[in-house]
Simulated scan of single mutants.
Amino acid sequence: MDSIKLQAYGKINLSLDVLRQREDGYHDVRMIMQTVKLHDNIDLQKTREPGIRIKTNLSFLPVNENNLMYRAAKLLMDEFDIKEGVSMQLKKVIPVSAGMAGGSTDAASVFYGMNKLFDLKLSIEELKKRAVTLGADIPFCLMRGTALSEGIGEILTPLPKLPPCPIVLAKPAISVSTKFVYQNLHVNDLPGSAHPDVDSVIEALSRHDIKDVAECMGNILETVTCTHYPEIEDIKAAMKELGAVNAIMSGSGPTVFGIFDDEHKAKKCYESLRFGKNKHLAKQVYLTEPWR
């Protein structure tokens, strides 16, 4: 195998709770991760010339060791003493700095692709152990599907699949620093009502009840991000007005997703945010569905 084409899928958080800040500066979380069909495209190709080269359709993305794709490839090349080089072509579709694990899923795909391209014979579990050293979301992006994520995000438990449903994604014209959000999250000062009911979402998933899943969703990071960026609440309100069962922020934001139980309502919401009276609220809008 000299080349491989990959699809790197984004994620949303059906629920996200932060339990405490650890002594090492990280936070213990309890969240439900869900892969969606919105994806980047990555082409990997072996090269005779040693080294790692990245090309992308977005000029502002780093193409050196500051890129997680680069670091994923280098980790495996160093460990397995790979003498050949690799060329990567990234077509970025998932919004950047958006709470959808765009960088993590690209790195996960590189881990997977390098394993195949250079016949390293690593299992997904073995890849996950290496991936977590670069980022807490990367193991889930290798796993995909629906999962309970605990610890700093590296402890993953598969959950029943999210039932098929339309999902509208909308990112306002801002970028949010995950570091900023966590630095300004004071968990001990928040009331109990600020913590989402993660267990109720798990129970709803086990019943395959999309309405209850949506109604029980929550994200404790909204207490920080929405305070600084009120446009997130505006998008949530617009989605609910246009028929979403519920709408919340994904990850540390600023992307908002709405879950619908009616395809016509979802399309109407997408069109309103993309072309209609609500187009001023979001810079990027997508209509997608759960990856299964």
Rank of each mutant, 00 (worst) to 15 (best):
M88F: 06
M88D: 14
Q89W: 08
Q89K: 14
Q89Y: 08
L90S: 05
L90M: 05
L90I: 12
K91T: 15
K91I: 15
I94R: 05
V96D: 14
V96C: 11
S97C: 09
S97G: 10
M100L: 15
A101L: 14
G102T: 08
G103R: 05
S104W: 06
S104M: 06
S104F: 08
T105E: 11
D106H: 04
D106R: 00
A107W: 03
A108P: 01
Y112F: 09
Y112M: 04
G113W: 14
N115H: 11
N115W: 12
K116A: 14
K116W: 10
L117M: 08
F118M: 08
F118I: 13
D119Y: 12
D119K: 15
L120N: 09
L120G: 09
K121P: 00
L122G: 12
L122S: 13
S123Y: 05
S123T: 15
E125H: 05
E125I: 01
E125A: 10
E126S: 15
L127V: 11
L127G: 04
K128W: 01
K128E: 10
K129G: 06
K129Q: 14
K129V: 14
A131N: 02
A131D: 02
A131L: 04
V132R: 11
T133H: 13
L134K: 07
L134P: 04
L134H: 02
I138S: 00
P139S: 09
F140I: 12
F140K: 10
F140A: 10
C141Q: 04
L142V: 01
L142K: 00
M143S: 12
R144V: 04
G145I: 15
T146I: 08
T146V: 08
L148P: 00
L148R: 05
S149I: 11
S149C: 14
S149F: 10
E150I: 03
E150R: 09
I152K: 02
I152H: 01
E154G: 02
E154W: 04
E154S: 03
I155F: 05
L156Q: 03
L156D: 00
L156I: 14
T157M: 08
T157Q: 09
K161P: 00
K161V: 06
L162D: 05
L162P: 02
L162H: 06
L162N: 03
P163Q: 12
P164I: 12
P164M: 13
P166Y: 07
P166N: 02
I167Y: 01
V168Y: 01
P172C: 06
A173W: 00
A173S: 13
V176F: 00
K179A: 15
K179Q: 13
L185D: 06
L185N: 03
D189V: 15
L190F: 03
L190Q: 05
L190M: 06
L190T: 08
L190W: 01
L190E: 15
P191E: 10
